[in-house]
Structure formats: C-alpha cells, structure tokens
C-alpha cells in the first residue's frame, strides 16, 4: 500500500505478462485438444465396420453398407446408423478399391469447387443445398423426384447420372451447371457423398428432411 498512485492495473508489464501467459496457455490447450480430436476423427478401419465399432468418421468401405440417420434418445439428436451390407454400383468394394474411389471423389470435389456453391458439413457457399446428408435425402430415394427424373433405380446411379449432366435435369430455375464430370469421377463423388453422410455430425442437420418424413411416413432413408 506504500505507493498509491502506481496501480497494477495501469502497469504495462502486468498486461504484457498476462497476455503472454494467456496466449501461451491457450495455444497449449488448443494443441492438446487437437491431438485428442484428431484421434477421434481419423477414419476408422474396415474391421471396425465389420465388428460394429462406432467411429465418428468411418472407413471408406462404409460405402458397402446401408446408412440411416436416426434419433438417438441418449444424445438428444439424430446420428448415422450403419446397417447391413448393400451393394454400391452393383458390387462390394474391397478396402483398397473403396479407398481409391473415395480419394478420387474428394479430389474431384475440390477440382470442381463444389464448396463455392454448396456447403459440405455446413461450410461453403449458400447457393445450393447442403450436401452433408445428400445421400440420405428422400428426394434421391426410390420414389423421390430426383431419382425419378434420372430414370435410374438406385440412389448411386441416379446421383452419378445427375452429376454428369446436371443441366439436363432442371428442377428449378437455379440449376447446377455442367462441370465436365466424367463417369468415373461421378462414381467417386457419390462415394464421397455417401461417406460424408456416415460421419457423426452431432445432429447436424437437425430433423433432417422432417417435412419429407411427415409427408411420406417412415424413416429418412428407405
């Protein structure tokens, strides 16, 4: 109390040291959290899928399974549910094939810049629908308008057809342009979209396609 007029609150040295401490410690916490998170969001393995081990981001071979999005009472929101085996483009993909296909799909998504029209996991542009759960969208399922217009009878074939010739299938004045996507690239993109729909996004988008469900009754994906 000796020196009344020199308050710590106006001491540059106090603020500088506090700034250094808070910044340094926040960085350390962020790095620590990053290690923890990276462990949790690394892709699972094919064995995880076979043994029904839940992973936040499953292995690429998740494209061989039926995926649904169901309300989980314990967590209070929907989560992806990986079900039984289901052929993808008429076959089961080996680990290596699936990884290669997903790689092609992710590369194509960047090369064609999907993210500057659509959102992926909710990030990107707001000109076209969010693609996070596009694979599960009722419009793509049997009987849905998007699958219907392509004349195909599986989700993957309908999506691949649309992606190759989007402007041939207009549904609204706002259309997706032809981006020169080849048949192979389209398969890759569909694998990418299917894989993305299996990621545990903590319930985003909430009540996905609730309206369509109300209209049709039943689950989100058929």
């Amino acid at each position: 109390m000796a020196n009344e007029n020199r308050s710590v609150w106006t001491s540059i040295s106090f603020w500088r040291r506090s700034a250094a401490w808070v910044t340094g410690f926040a960085v350390i916490l962020l790095i620590w959290l990053t290690f923890d998170t990276l462990g949790q969001i690394s892709m699972g393995t094919d064995a995880d899928l076979k043994n029904k081990v839940t992973k936040r981001v499953p292995a690429p071979t998740v494209i061989n399974y039926h995926i649904d999005y169901k309300y989980n009472a314990k967590r209070g929101h929907e989560v992806p549910v990986i079900g039984d085996k289901q052929p993808f483009f008429g076959k089961e993909w080996s680990e290596e094939e699936a990884a290669k296909l997903l790689h092609l799909g992710k590369l194509t998504s960047q090369a064609k810049n999907c993210m500057d029209c659509h959102t992926l996991l909710g990030n990107g542009a707001y000109y076209a629908p969010d693609l996070t759960k596009a694979w599960l969208d009722p419009a793509w399922q049997n009987g849905g308008p998007l699958q219907g217009m392509t004349g195909k009878n599986t989700v993957e074939e309908a999506m691949a057809e649309f992606l190759q010739h989007p402007s041939q299938y207009p549904t609204h004045a706002r259309m997706m342009p032809n981006l020169g996507i080849t048949a192979e690239e389209a398969k890759g993109l569909v694998a990418f979209l299917k894989h993305m729909s299996s990621i545990d996004t903590n319930g985003f988008p909430r009540n996905f396609s609730q309206a369509a469900k109300r209209e049709q009754g039943g689950t989100y994906a058929h």
Partner: peptide, 16 residues
Amino acid sequence: RADLGGGWEAFFTAQN
C-alpha cells in the same frame, strides 16, 4: 431448418 429440417426440398422451399 426449423420447420422443414433441411435437405433438398426444404432448401428450395425457403429459397423461393
């Protein structure tokens, strides 16, 4: 989002 729950149809309903 709140009413229709997102997705293709919900998106265009809101946009229009």
